[in-house]
């Protein structure tokens, strides 16, 4: 068993915290991490269960202070990868480092003190109150008991602090789980499907908190199956399928790499449709079809401006134009298939 040293100097992620403040020696911190600015490095990681290759050779760098999304179908390997990064499941091959420290290695306990984790469908103890739950986790994380009440406040559970978790709704449990993850001022957060069970208002509050944390320099890795929700909020994302990272980058970069066509919808009165179709004949479009209330067009991204310019000439006949960028869903299914 590794002997933990709880001093801040020995805490590999504390150097990450120091970098956010003026005067901190950033170069030292990055050199200690071994790679430039990566808080989590995944190198050639595999996980085999018999003949099943749950994770089949993954390389990944998660950068300091970024909000990183991990998406994929069920069974794509993202949960297994998540658990390996947390040290819950040993890798069959390869290496994962958190703040420069090998997961499961000698100094991993110290690194873990700076890590917060919110599991999917978090299960807490029904017989404890919200505050008692946080006290329990605070003791195990080496955080001060005085941090518990503010953590509850931050997730909007201050009123329910002395109620038993048994009486909590699913959304409240999820928020309590999030408060637990925030204890001990983590520099790295792992959030597995964190908005499950939250209502839209709570989801908005949750992402507002994530933005605050990012401003404080906290690195976050999250999974979500609600792609529309994640695509507006993550800095970068990895799409996993069949145990491999199929694509990695910003949402914009992935869209461009996929070269998905733009969808343009025109609102056109029924009597004008034939005339508009005729006018479109000369444009470099990929497809023209009917849709409710008008016409639907597809064109290549790089021709967006030229096509829009031509369409404005039809202002008398076209009452409205809607341009729809390809969603992450389109990108996701493009890569995963």
């Amino acid at each position: 068993m590794p002997n933990a040293s709880s001093g801040a100097g020995a805490d590999p992620l504390a150097t990450a915290a120091a970098e956010q403040h003026p005067g901190a020696q950033a170069t030292e911190a990055t050199e200690a991490a071994g790679t430039t600015d990566a808080v989590v490095t995944v190198r050639g990681v595999r996980k085999h269960y018999g003949a099943v290759h749950a994770v089949d050779g993954v390389d990944l760098d998660i950068r300091r202070g970024e909000l990183f999304g991990l998406i994929g179908h069920n069974g794509a390997g993202k949960s297994t990868l998540f658990k390996m990064m947390l040290g819950l499941v040993p890798a069959s091959a390869g290496e994962i480092r958190i703040g420069g420290v090998a997961v499961g290695g000698r100094d991993f306990r110290a690194a873990r003190r700076a890590v917060g984790y919110l599991p999917e469908n978090v299960v807490l103890y029904d017989n404890l109150t919200g505050l008692e739950t946080l006290h329990f986790f605070a003791r195990l994380k080496g955080a001060a008991a005085a941090d518990c009440a503010p953590a509850l406040e931050r997730v909007g559970l201050a009123q329910a602090a002395r109620r038993r978790v048994r009486e909590y709704s699913k959304g409240m449990r999820q928020r309590l789980g999030f408060a637990q993850a925030l204890l001990g001022k983590p520099r790295l957060l792992f959030l597995d499907e964190p908005t499950t069970g939250l209502d839209p208002e709570a989801i908005r509050d949750f992402y507002a908190t994530l933005r605050e944390l990012r401003a404080e320099g906290v690195t976050m890795v999250l999974t979500s199956h609600i792609l529309a929700e994640i695509q507006e909020r993550v800095d970068r994302l990895a799409i996993m399928a069949a145990g491999k990272v199929q694509a990695l980058g910003t949402v914009q970069a992935l869209r461009e790499r996929m070269d998905l066509p733009l969808n343009i919808e025109l609102r056109v009165a029924a009597v004008e449709i034939a005339a508009v179709r005729a006018a479109l004949a000369g444009l470099p479009l990929l497809a023209v079809g009917d849709c409710e209330g008008g016409l639907a067009l597809q064109c290549r991204r790089e021709l967006k401006m030229a096509v829009l310019e031509a369409l404005t000439m039809l202002a008398g006949r076209v009452s409205d134009i809607r341009v729809r960028e390809p969603s992450l869903e389109d990108v996701f299914f493009g890569f995963a298939d």
């Binding site: 040290g87 819950l88 195990l140």
Partner: peptide
Amino acid sequence: ERGSLDLLLALPITRFE
């Protein structure tokens, strides 16, 4: 079985402890 073990094991505590 309840699903609380992973959360405990992700904390700075060893399995033996």
